[in-house]
Amino acid sequence: MEKIFFRPESLYDVPTHYCPGCGHGIAHRLVAQVINELGIREKTIGIAPVGCAVVAYDYWNFDCSEAPHGRALAVATAIKRVHPQNIVFTYQGDGDLAAIGTNETIHAANRGENLSVIFINNTVYGMTGGQMAPTTLLGQKTSTSIEGRIKEKHGYPLKISEMLAMLPGVCYVERVSLHSPQETLKAKRAIKQAFENQINNLGFSLVEVLSPCPTYWGQAPKESLDWIRDVMQKEFPLGRIK
């Protein structure tokens, strides 16, 4: 009998520290599966963010580096320039990539660095306790937008993927979601595409992953998946952006 589901070598056999219903574990697994399928584990270098996924290297079985909050793409740029033959990717949250690291994000993209970016959008700062993020939806309550995000006060959810798609150095941008098995499979295909683009030297690829954070959304895990489907998706439509 053919074994069709198993732990990829790129993922250690350890429990993760993530909350019940969190999307990070699934996203980590998708990345690990793709790396295995492409046979690049021994030449991959991953950059872990500052955020809930800071210890992603405890789960991934390949070379990894931390980066200061927001600076993952500066670190990744340098590693890729030093080792153009290696496969280098960053795994960043919305606060990391679209707030504190916006400058590094835009300029790495604009230089067309041959990198793959996995961008986890869960609309909040998870690690610090659920504060408002650049991607928080209008009306969404967080510990720093107690009455809900108000456009007059806090501005609008930042659509960084659409912004980056405008840059000529960017070759591929797709927004995917983890709210159902079908969407999760699409997410995996998109992540694979981002890595294949790098292998083919096509430039900067980014996959935005809508990912549940039941803890700071104040929802049960199942509820949080429905919320992505029914609410979040409207603000952040799925599909290929570039």
């Binding site: 270098i45 500066a74 670190v75 340098a78 030093v82």
Partner: peptide
């Protein structure tokens, strides 16, 4: 931070 990356890569 690029220097961080360059150095981490061994250069």
């Amino acid at each position: 931070n690029m220097v961080y990356g360059g150095s981490a890569a061994g250069a």
